[in-house]
Write a protein that binds this DNA or RNA. Structure first.
Lengths: 129, 129
DNA sequence: CGGAATAGTTAGCACGACTAATGAGTTACG
DNA sequence: CGTAACTCATTAGTCGTGCTAACTATTCCG
């Protein structure tokens, strides 16, 4: 009873469009489940919330709309996604300098240290690892 | 304003463990969101429910526990996941021949035709594509 | 000034996952 | 045998993540 016998390969079962689509769906869903669980025990941020510091690491000080477009979600989704790292003190909301409609999200010093520690310090326990 | 300028690469930003983990999370979550939306309009099964006919296509007549282990989810999750394709007539539940605790899930003829049409017929509108 | 457009939020829903607890059936052992 | 321990599936309740619809506040423009 080998792994190969238990686990039909794509060649064996899924040469149709529907079969390949099913393989892809199953694989991606499993990977996402795994990623949402495989995080450091100290980590208080969920997989969705961890995305926000990641986006701000690339470009700090982005509006909610920019974050939503970057992550390809609707604005209300990003509004809620930002709430948890904000409550945790990782990021802050502040009004835009010139446009009163916009809200700028920035990473805090503390959040940056927690999420992106220096290489020498390692990333053990980082909320983003 | 090119794609390359807007989209920092892994090389540019994410050489740390935390950075690579963030890249992976973001990519997988986006792909899953996309897959859950990208299905044929005729398709009445959600992404989670589509997994069940796929598993039964490999091995028909599996118990709820076997499906849960194959998909690496907890049994209660699979119990609920099976409900929707069962209500849609794609699969059936029946008691196990010898073990009264077990429940066997099988794909119906109709479900098999709908999910895995012959190659010549194509898979347009298949609940599994 | 006043209407249209834009940005963000709130509220409510769907879906997929989990844990804890329950019921029903099987197995093992004294 | 008969009961205690175990296994399997389900129910109930919760959380996280996405959506749409509707609302508020602000800005833009004619």
């Amino acid at each position: 009873m080998s792994y190969a016998n238990d686990m039909p390969t794509v060649e064996a079962v899924s040469r149709t469009d529907a079969g390949l689509a099913a393989e892809l769906r199953t694989s991606v869903m499993r990977l996402r489940r795994r990623l949402s669980v495989e995080r450091h025990p100290d980590n208080q941020l969920s997989i969705g919330s961890m995305v926000v510091p990641g986006l701000l690491h690339r470009n700090d000080a982005q509006t909610v709309g920019e974050l939503a477009r970057a992550e390809k979600v609707q604005p209300p989704s990003m509004t809620r996604t930002v709430t948890s790292p904000e409550d945790g003190g990782f990021v802050t909301r502040r009004p835009h300098e010139t446009d009163g409609r916009r809200v700028v999200v920035e990473i805090t010093d503390w959040g940056a240290r927690r999420c992106w520690p220096t290489a020498s310090a390692g990333t053990r326990g980082s909320p983003c690892s």
